[in-house]
């Protein structure tokens, strides 16, 4: 039962991460390698205020949201200077490395490499155990994130973000403040990623820098791209796929280390095959969007894409 709770918890928590990352990468086309950093920031911020500062329990949530939003905005500022594509990837990678390195070094704040343990738990709801309570809250948050992304993807704000990913210059020409939009997008997705971190710290009541490395960013990205970055449900399907498939693999009776390696190989192969043959992921958008022409986007095709999205 406890194990089942853990699986449900992981599925819901990764859904929050992939949904928020889907807004950033799928909708806004801003490729960040620092999403694990946002997640870790939420975990550490909530743990710090409830454990070290002994603030009331629920304060962890708004503090984490605020920290995530500020960190997202901070990452966005150099992103504005370097533009898009691999440059953004490199800058966000740098932020991710600095973040984990600071977690290791700021020992008074974070407990260093040993991490932090014994966070006070949310009070249990009804007859549920503490872990089940956290899972319940995580599920509610995941549902809220799903609703939010759904509303956005189909609302006018989502259209603007879509245009941001397709061609900034056109959007600028239409009188939108592209810089401010990018900061908003990074801040909102950062806050959502942080929220997942709060629940992670609550469930395990132990966090350490090793949980939030760039490898986790890559994992979340893989989940998103295989599930489908261009729909509301895609990120959720990707998250659950990655939580449940390893469980099926362990039932095959292979030794743990072999099963883990095979699972990684499978995911890597899936990523390559999907990117080449089905870049829209498992859950594809119903209406076929006009694809980007090969090479650089020129002003003309960019206009056409934005027009088609309306």
């Amino acid at each position: 039962m406890e194990f089942l709770t853990f699986l449900v918890f992981l599925g819901c928590m990764y859904s929050i991460l992939t949904s928020s990352f889907g807004l950033l990468m799928g909708l806004g086309r801003q490729f960040s390698m620092a999403h694990a950093g946002m997640w870790g920031l939420g975990a550490y911020a909530s743990a710090y205020v409830t454990l070290k500062l002994e603030w009331p329990l629920w304060w962890g949530v708004p503090v984490a949201l605020l920290a995530g939003a500020l960190a997202g905005a901070l990452v966005a500022i150099p992103a504005l200077r370097v533009g898009v594509g691999v440059y953004l990837a490199i800058v966000t990678f740098a932020f991710q490395m600095v973040f984990v390195n600071m977690l290791r070094n700021l020992t008074e704040l974070t407990g260093g490499s040993h991490g932090m343990a014994g966070m006070p738990a949310f009070p249990a709801v009804g007859t549920l155990s503490t872990t089940q309570t956290v899972t319940l809250y995580t599920a509610i948050a995941a549902a809220a994130a799903l609703l939010l992304t759904h509303l956005w993807r189909h609302g006018s704000y989502g259209r603007v973000l879509l245009a941001l990913g397709r061609d900034e210059k056109v959007l600028e020409g239409l009188g939108r403040d592209v810089r401010w939009l990018k900061i908003q997008l990074f801040a909102i997705t950062g806050a959502l990623g942080s929220l997942a971190g709060v629940f992670y710290a609550q469930y395990l009541s132990f966090i350490s820098p090793d949980s939030f490395t760039v490898h986790e960013s890559i994992l979340v990205m893989t989940m998103l791209l295989i599930g489908g970055a261009f729909t509301t449900l895609g990120p959720v399907v990707g998250a659950w796929f990655f939580v449940l498939v390893p469980e099926l693999l362990t039932r095959l009776g292979l030794p743990d280390s072999v099963a883990a390696a095979l699972q990684q190989i499978l995911f890597g192969l899936l990523l390559v095959v999907f990117m080449i043959f089905r870049p829209q992921g498992i859950v594809a958008p119903r209406r076929r969007r006009q694809r980007r022409p090969p090479g650089n986007v020129d002003a003309h095709s960019g206009t056409a894409t934005v027009g088609a999205a309306r």
Partner: peptide, 28 residues
């Protein structure tokens, strides 16, 4: 490149996939 989604981010992501496969195969 030929499937018209050969932008730099796609190639970066695919490259990461290749790395994951090879690292784990060698580890195995």
């Amino acid at each position: 490149r030929h499937r018209s989604n050969g932008d730099q981010i796609s190639t970066l992501v695919v490259a990461l996939g290749v790395v994951i496969v090879v690292e784990n195969a060698v580890g195995l």
